[in-house]
Simulated assay, not measured.
Amino acid sequence: MIDHLNLTSKRDLSPSVQLMSDEKGVEFVKVQHPKAQACFTLHGAHLIHFQAQDQAPAIWLSKTAIFDNKKAIRGGVPICWPWFGAPAPSLGEGLPSHGFARNSLWQLGDIKEDEQQVVISFTLTDSPATHSLWPHQFELTLTAIISDTLQLSLITKNTGSQPLQYLAALHTYLNISAPEQVEVTGLGPTYIDSLDNKAIKNAAANLTLSGPVDSLYIEPTNIVKLADSGLARELNITSQGHDTIVAWTPWVEGAKSMGDMPDDGYQTMVCLEAAITGNAVTVAPGESHLLSTTIS
């Protein structure tokens, strides 16, 4: 799903990992391991591809996604942090939706691999640029374990002297065969319907896709299942440290309104994202909090 990016190798980082770049100089970290393939951008520590060996891709990427080290990338797993959605008015005006982590340049950390997996970490720390948006000192680490399963762990460490509070999401775009072929279970009994004035509603046992969805399931189970009869597979999404699973698809009109999504892009994706959207997590000085999602 990333062949159209025409990446070229800059150097080997380990036997299975290469630093790549596109024609504009945007840098990518590509994994080619016997267990799976994956690819990240350093812009946002953004996973744009994951495919276990002999399986269809699990992660969806828009064919018209923009890679310019400025705009958030459409598809993959954007990291929404340290707020979800619009920022609180108390933070000020003109701040980016879903925080600044997905629009920041991260540093590549350790890479470890063996016959079973590749482990890669990325870090983002506070700077004058982040202080202009959010007044806290922090160290944010994304650790990815690439194997026949995918695990993404986002660790927020408070390196300052005052408590910090944050909201977040691992905004996971999943690859599907077609909307009518999928069924989602395990989302929980109630949800906030963002398409209906944030009304709290009772959920059906199964979520099927026949129109736009923007729902915050506020009592999720630990494991959400995405059954896809068209791909003859079931994905298990196991999350920790979250209070919400967000289900989202823009559907026809939504896709048409996005310059970085094909008009028919909604037909092969759905977002099921581990998120913190209710009460902000408070992290004391010197402490950390983990938000994670595993796809198997």
Rank of each mutant, 00 (worst) to 15 (best):
Q240W: 12
L207W: 14
L290V: 12
H171Y: 14
L272Q: 00
N202Y: 06
L187I: 05
P87T: 03
Y217I: 04
P163I: 14
E183P: 01
A65S: 10
Q267C: 01
I111G: 12
N6E: 02
G186L: 03
T172R: 04
A129F: 00
A56K: 05
Q51R: 04
V213S: 05
L170A: 08
I237Y: 08
H46C: 06
D193E: 01
G241A: 09
Q267H: 00
V31T: 06
S288C: 13
N103F: 14
H43Q: 15
R11C: 13
I48W: 04
L231N: 07
N236D: 05
L187R: 06
G241M: 10
F50E: 06
G265E: 02
A284S: 13
Q267G: 00
G99K: 13
K24V: 03
M20P: 04
Y173L: 13
G188L: 09
N279G: 08
W248Q: 08
G286A: 09
T172C: 13
I218R: 08
F100C: 10
I223W: 13
D68C: 02
L226S: 10
K63M: 02
K71V: 13
G92R: 04
S229Q: 15
K225N: 14
P96Q: 08
D148M: 11
L170R: 11
A284W: 00
A88W: 07
W83M: 03
M269W: 00
W106K: 01
I145D: 14
T159I: 14
D3A: 10
A178H: 13
A178R: 11
F100L: 15
V119Y: 09
S127A: 06
V252A: 05
G160F: 13
V119K: 10
A275W: 00
T156Q: 15
A129T: 09
N279W: 00
E219Y: 09
V224M: 10
